[in-house]
Each structure stands twice: as C-alpha cells, then as structure tokens.
Amino acid sequence: MRISSLLHTVGQGFRLLFRNKSYSLASIGTISACLFLFGMFYSVLTNFQHIVRTAEEGVSVTVFFKHGVTEEQIDQIRIAVEEREEVAQVNYVSAEDAWASFSEEYLGEYAEGFTENPLEDSANLEIYLSDISKQSELVSYLESLEEVRMVNRSELTANTLSGANRLIGYASVAIIGILLLVAVFLISNTIATGIQSHKDEINIMKYIGATDLYVRGPYVFEGLLLGFLGSLIPLVVTYFVYNKAVEIITSRYYMLTQLMKFLPVEEIFTTLIPISVILGVGIGFVGSILTIRKHLHV
C-alpha cells in the first residue's frame, strides 16, 4: 500500500467516524458495554479461579492404614500415589508425628501422662491434589488398596468449587457471545449507513478508476477504529470499578477477606488489555467486512 493510500484510508476513516456521530457513538457504546461486561466476568472468573486454586491447595485426602502395615509398605504406596497425574504432593505423617501434633494442639502439658502412643495406627499419607475434580477417582483407587483402612476426603468442597467454576465459565461465554453478536450487528449498521450516505461518491469513484482498496479501505478502518475505541473505554471503567469493588468488599466484609484473596488489578489487566483490544478490533473488522461484502460492490 502506498503512503498516500494509507493516509487516505486513515483520514477518510476518521472523517466517516465523525460524519455518522450518532451511529458511531451507538456502536462504540455497545462494544464498550459488551467489553465492560466481558472485563467484569473475566475479573470475577479469574478471581474465582484464583480462589479455587488456593482452596485446592488446602484440600487434601488423608489415608489411614490397617494395623500391622509397615512403614516400607506405606512408602511404596506413597511412591505409587505420587506418580498419579492428579496428585500434587504427598506428605507422610508417622504415628509419632500424628501424636505429637495432636498432643501439642489439644493436650498440652497433659500429654506427658501418656506413656504409649494412643495413635499407634494413625500413620497416614496427606495427599494434595492438582485437580480437585479428580478427587473421587483417587479415593476409589486408594480404597481399593488392601493396606488401606480409611480414606478421609472433602468431596463436597471439591465438587462445589469445580462446579461453580464451570458454571461461571459457561455463563460468561454465553453472555459475551450474545453481546459480541449485537456489537457486530451495530457496527455493521453504522458502516452500512456510512456507505449509503456516500453512495454517489462511491459511484463516481468507481467510474474514475478507484481501486477496491481505495474505496473500501476507509470503511474497514472505520470499523477497526470503532472497535478500538470501544475497547479502551471499558478498560478504563473496569480498572476503577474493580479497584473500588475490592476496596468495598475488603472494608465491609472482613470475614470474606479471610477466606479469599483478591488478585491485584495489574495482574488481571496484563491479560485483559490485549484480549479486550483484540476483541474490540476483531468485532470492528468482522462488522466492516460483512457490511462491505453486502453493500459495497466496486
């Protein structure tokens, strides 16, 4: 593309944007609304995933062994469990460790009265998962082992967390998908209006010998501009809304902050900025290309 063509495309693109002010504003507004909601969903989803990840780290399966199972046998089981895909970490807690921890937590100085270890059969393996949705699978495996006496698990937490995570994900995708279609439709309308109001000019261009690029370029650029501007506004709004929301939650719901830690806005925006801009520009591009194909025959 020649520099003069590029300048024409950019200049005309801006002119078109300002000539159809009301339509341009409507398009930018819709893209902004769409990407703002996307930003909000993304922030909630990312935070939720962060919470789930943190919770996952705390969710463990504890395996107790039958009387007479030796440390060597437990160690072999530990090695086998560690090799499993869903397992993040396995800790061996001996009967002595279990008693020491119990007595320190609950008995204090009274523990001295015990001459034998009352938790003799309490040697166990604490298993931490990398994927809590596979907890049942792991528990079934453990229960099938001959040496295992009992498996303690927290399946309710695991299922609730992974289920909620999925639900938020699906809802986000559905709502954002609908909004994206609305945005593409509105951009398409804006560009179609521009083409209609310049029908005579386009017609003359055609007879004078304007290339496809010369005629169509400004409309594609207008679409890209609408999308780009539409992506910047929600980013700024999301930035302030997110910070404010975290501030309010932190100050009013102190208990909640004990359970979860919010991600810093910078961490969220590292991914949100490129995704929003690409989405905005993409919506603009798709909207303009669809319209040009339908309405602009050079």
């Binding site: 005579d200 000019e201 017609n203 003359i204 261009m205 007879y207 004078i208 010998g209």
Partner: peptide, 30 residues
C-alpha cells in the same frame, strides 16, 4: 477506467463540495 473520462446527464457532482474539490477528487483517486 483510468483511461476513460465519463460524463453523465445528471452531472453526478459531490454537492457538499466546491468546484475545485469536485475536480481534485478525480486526481486524488488516482
């Protein structure tokens, strides 16, 4: 089409522009 000059019965001028801009338009296109 750049080798052709075409004139129509209804002139087909750009009504929102002046005389100079209407003629310069053809030059800018090429």
């Amino acid at each position: 089409r750049r080798n052709l000059g075409i004139v129509f019965q209804d002139f087909r001028l750009l009504k929102d522009r002046d005389v100079y801009e209407n003629v310069a338009f053809a030059q800018r296109i090429i």
